[in-house]
Amino acid sequence: MTAVVDDMTWLEVGTLDEIPRQGARVLKREQGDIAVFRTAADEVFALLNRCPHRGGPLSEGILYGRNIVCPLHNWCLDLASGEAKGPDEGCAPAYATRVEAGRVFVCTEPN
């Protein structure tokens, strides 16, 4: 389902329960896949599914707290901003998310 709210386009990913805790699902798009993460605290974040270092699939990384570790070279990124944590530098575009009545939505434009 696609919805326009406040002049922004939101795509429905599915239910919160369909995303494993401390796991991810991938929203496939021509413009680049989006990794949608669910933390142990049931927070939902979304990043472009490409590590800024070498393009590793962030959805396959290790999630801890509000961070994701790239599976290729262990870069750590903040889920809220997409910013790499020191000493690494770079950023994966972050996308706004919302959960309504147990359904997860991702904005199609990066923050």
Rank of each mutant, 00 (worst) to 15 (best):
A3D: 13
V4N: 08
V5F: 00
V5G: 00
D6C: 01
D6R: 08
M8S: 10
M8Y: 04
T9G: 02
T9Y: 03
W10Y: 12
W10K: 02
L11E: 14
E12T: 08
V13F: 04
V13I: 15
V13P: 00
V13Y: 04
G14Q: 06
D17N: 13
D17A: 15
D17M: 05
E18R: 05
E18V: 04
I19D: 06
I19W: 07
R21E: 13
R21C: 07
G23I: 06
A24N: 03
R25K: 15
R25Y: 00
R25M: 14
K28N: 08
K28M: 09
R29F: 04
D33V: 06
D33Q: 03
D33F: 07
I34N: 03
I34Y: 02
I34W: 01
A35F: 01
F37L: 13
F37C: 13
R38K: 13
R38G: 11
A40D: 14
A40L: 11
A41N: 13
D42H: 10
E43S: 12
E43K: 14
E43T: 12
E43P: 04
E43N: 14
V44C: 13
V44W: 11
V44K: 14
L47C: 12
L47I: 12
N49I: 10
R50F: 06
R50D: 08
R50A: 12
R50Q: 15
C51F: 09
C51E: 05
P52E: 10
R54K: 12
R54G: 07
G55H: 08
S59C: 15
E60H: 07
G61R: 05
L63A: 01
L63G: 01
Y64N: 11
Y64H: 14
G65M: 12
G65L: 10
I68D: 05
I68P: 05
C70V: 07
C70L: 01
P71M: 02
P71C: 02
P71V: 03
P71F: 02
P71Q: 03
H73L: 03
H73Y: 06
N74L: 04
N74C: 06
W75C: 01
C76R: 03
C76Q: 08
C76H: 00
C76V: 14
C76N: 04
L77P: 02
D78V: 12
A80N: 12
A80P: 00
S81M: 12
S81F: 09
E83V: 09
A84E: 09
A84Y: 01
A84K: 00
K85W: 01
G86R: 01
G86A: 10
G86F: 01
D88Y: 01
E89L: 08
G90W: 11
C91P: 00
P93E: 14
A96K: 13
R98K: 15
R98F: 01
E100K: 12
E100N: 06
A101G: 09
A101H: 10
G102V: 10
G102N: 04
F105W: 15
F105D: 04
V106T: 11
C107F: 11
C107N: 14
E109H: 13
E109P: 00
E109F: 09
P110H: 15
N111A: 10
N111L: 14
